[in-house]
Computed example of a mutant assay.
Amino acid sequence: MKLHTIGYWGAYPKANEATSCYLIEDSNTKILLDCGSGALSKLQAKANLEDLDAVFISHTHTDHMADIYSLEYAMLILTQLGKRTRPLDVYVYTEDIASLTFEFPDVMRLHQLRLTDTVKIGSLMLTFSENIHEIPCCSIKVSNNKSKLVYSGDTGYTTALVDFAMAADLLLIECSFYRKQKGMMKGHLSSEEVADIATKAKAKHVVLTHFPHFGDILQLKKEVETVFGQSVYLAKEGFTFTI
């Protein structure tokens, strides 16, 4: 299984970059976790849009799903050109699926995610866990026969994430605040909280993402490593990790 970082900023993208979006590849299966602002342009450097099998949206804040509507138009045009012959399945964790304004159900097939769901896409199995956030938001576990990746989505500190991420081969986790800012915002994690979750979950590898637009991002890495005691990686454009 391979993780490709497409976008990694919180709130809004820096120039020529993107907010949360991650491409997961395994065998012939390709899925997206979130599809934030700027993601669609960046994604095409890593994958052909006609090859996507599914998209999973952790929650409906725009930095996690802004480009899903542009992706719908891409699916429409690719279908009209004969380059895609099947609808794209899009799974969204939200209480109000009817409020989403998709226009072309023949090319974009919308599903409301529930925590009890287990979704199989090709060689991948996906399960979900509730987060602490301003709106409904879930963390996502992606597994195959050999390994498992856990994506935190956006969340405040919760022991549910520790349990959900237990023994993960890769923990892709938001890190929105520095250690001194712990508790600054209920729905996001500080570096100290990230380190605590990773340590208690006994994660094998940790990738930090969803970065703030202030301070030195390398400091976040150092603060997590000080407690976690193992290698920590920073998500960035072009970053690929194989597990």
Rank of each mutant, 00 (worst) to 15 (best):
F211A: 11
I24W: 07
A47R: 01
H210P: 06
R84L: 05
T159Y: 10
S139W: 02
H133S: 12
E17W: 13
L149W: 12
D67L: 08
E130G: 07
E17M: 13
I31S: 02
E237P: 03
F214K: 01
Y73N: 00
Q230Y: 13
S231Y: 10
C137V: 02
L189K: 03
D67Y: 10
V224G: 01
D216Y: 11
T85W: 05
L124M: 11
R114K: 06
T242W: 06
H64W: 04
P105R: 00
L110V: 15
D117H: 14
T158L: 15
F228C: 12
R114H: 14
I24C: 15
M65Y: 12
A18V: 10
F241L: 15
S99Q: 04
M166I: 06
M184I: 08
M185R: 02
N131L: 05
L170K: 03
I135S: 14
I24H: 04
M184V: 11
A18K: 01
K180C: 10
C35M: 15
A98G: 09
I135M: 14
L218P: 00
M75G: 05
S147W: 07
N145F: 07
F228A: 06
K2L: 10
V194A: 04
S99W: 03
D196R: 08
R86V: 08
G10A: 13
L23K: 01
F164D: 06
A66G: 05
A160T: 15
I31R: 00
G122Y: 10
I24F: 10
K148G: 04
I140M: 14
S139M: 14
K83D: 04
D106A: 06
T226L: 12
T19V: 05
I243M: 13
F241A: 11
I135E: 13
E225D: 03
L171S: 08
F177Y: 05
A195E: 02
T199S: 13
S152Q: 08
G122K: 09
D154Y: 14
A74N: 01
I173A: 02
V162K: 04
L49F: 09
L208T: 09
G153L: 09
L115T: 15
A201H: 00
T60W: 04
I97A: 07
E225C: 07
R109S: 07
K46P: 00
K222W: 11
G7V: 12
P105K: 01
S99D: 09
E134P: 02
F228S: 10
D26V: 06
T118G: 15
K141W: 08
F102Y: 09
F214Y: 14
V227S: 11
M75Y: 02
L52Q: 00
G36P: 00
L172D: 09
K200Y: 05
Y73K: 01
Y233E: 15
I57N: 01
N131Y: 11
D53L: 11
A18D: 07
L172S: 07
Y73P: 00
H210I: 04
S143F: 09
